[in-house]
Simulated assay, not measured.
Amino acid sequence: MPDKLARYRSRRDAGRTPEPVPAAPPEPGHGDAFVIQEHHARSLHWDLRLERDGVLVSWAVPKGLPADPGTNHLAVHTEDHPMEYLTFHGEIPRGEYGGGTMTVWDTGTYETEKWSDREVKVVLHGQRASGRFVLFQTRGSNWMIHRMDAPVRDPFPPLDPMLPTERGQPPRDAAAYAFEFAWGGRRLLVPVEGGRTAAAREHPWLRPLAASLGSRSAVLDGEIVTLGGADVLVLYDLLYDDGRSLVALPYRERRAALESLGPAAPRWQVAPSWPGDPGPVRRAAREQGLPGVVAKRLDSPYEPGRGTSWLFIPS
């Protein structure tokens, strides 16, 4: 009987990688486990592995599992992996095959509806991945993955920013607002899906931001400002998070969701925000040479265009 792990073993040096490299051929098995690993290698992708006959049959999925039946994703059929890979996570050294950081994104069990050399139809039962999927071979060695059921997901919101209206003085009911610096930069909404963002076409330095969110879908609102001689994305709102539109929620809840998401790096950061008292914020804006402050009603939804829920107050 051929050794199903021969190809896997030939690509790895057990003395150089922390990956499991079993010396013996796999034992036959009849389990139904699966694992999805998030793999930050030369390019971000997700590895879907299904237990079958004592090994994990594997596909690399560059954009992750499709969220709805309307989009198929590429799935590259790779070599079978050992069962120990169900729990493997760690750093594969650079220069080694698959070098990069690997984490377990989800794990669980699955049901087989069909399994042939050209088509695999399964139902996944995981915490993050669940539903009916089919993997099918196309031309040559290419495979695709298609979602067969339709989870409840909100569509992406319109990518038009909410804009403030200028006022000479802060609002009298200051306790109903949060006050933030007006940065004087260029507004940018950043849609992220499958670890990628279209905003990186113009700003390539945003690719790591999208990759840092993994498979999480999001729409971030902020602006590009120059700090210390470099462009930095200052973030202050979250319009969409992992299949759920947040635009109808009050600003205080969207802001809390953004802070919980926690995007922070030298080239992007969450803007500071202070509820209730505009005085110190205006003084700090003047001292830093900023154009003013923006007052944002804590109970306001996100409404594209210029309205009265966000107010620009000059320094």
Rank of each mutant, 00 (worst) to 15 (best):
P171S: 13
S215M: 12
A271L: 11
V270D: 05
A264G: 05
V35P: 14
F136G: 01
G29R: 01
S217C: 06
H203S: 08
E113T: 05
I224F: 02
V123N: 11
E180C: 10
R153M: 12
I92V: 15
P66C: 04
L159Y: 00
P22T: 00
S217H: 06
R7L: 13
L56H: 11
P158Q: 09
E119T: 09
R7E: 13
R267L: 15
V122H: 08
V152Y: 03
A285W: 02
P171R: 14
V122R: 06
T17N: 03
G140T: 02
D149K: 00
V190K: 06
P69M: 10
G95S: 04
L163V: 14
D221S: 15
R12G: 01
W46D: 13
S10P: 02
L206F: 00
K296E: 08
A230Q: 14
L163F: 06
F133K: 10
P314K: 06
D241S: 12
Q288Y: 08
E259F: 00
R172I: 07
Y110T: 01
L56T: 07
G243E: 10
A174R: 06
A211S: 07
M1C: 05
R9C: 04
G90T: 14
P157I: 07
S315W: 05
R9N: 01
Y240N: 09
S300T: 09
S300N: 07
A265Q: 12
V152D: 14
A257D: 06
S130K: 09
E38H: 06
R244V: 15
R172V: 14
R306K: 15
V293M: 10
K114N: 06
G95I: 04
E253C: 07
G214P: 00
G64E: 10
A295K: 06
E166N: 00
L48W: 09
L220G: 03
A265E: 15
F88C: 02
L233I: 03
S212M: 13
P18Y: 08
F34V: 04
A174L: 03
D231K: 13
T138S: 07
I92K: 02
P171C: 11
K4L: 15
D160R: 11
H73T: 05
G289Q: 11
F88S: 01
R147M: 07
V61Y: 09
L213Q: 03
E38I: 00
H81N: 13
V122K: 05
L163T: 12
F312M: 13
T109I: 02
L56E: 09
S141M: 07
T107Q: 14
A265Y: 12
A129D: 01
P266R: 09
G108E: 03
R297Y: 02
T71Y: 03
G262F: 05
L124K: 12
L290M: 10
H203A: 07
R139V: 10
D237A: 06
S116E: 13
E51N: 04
V76N: 11
L261G: 08
E180M: 12
L298K: 08
Y177V: 01
A6D: 14
G305W: 08
R255A: 13
P314Q: 04
R306N: 05
L48F: 08
L213V: 00
W143R: 03
S309A: 15
L206Y: 01
L298T: 04
G185Y: 09
L290K: 06
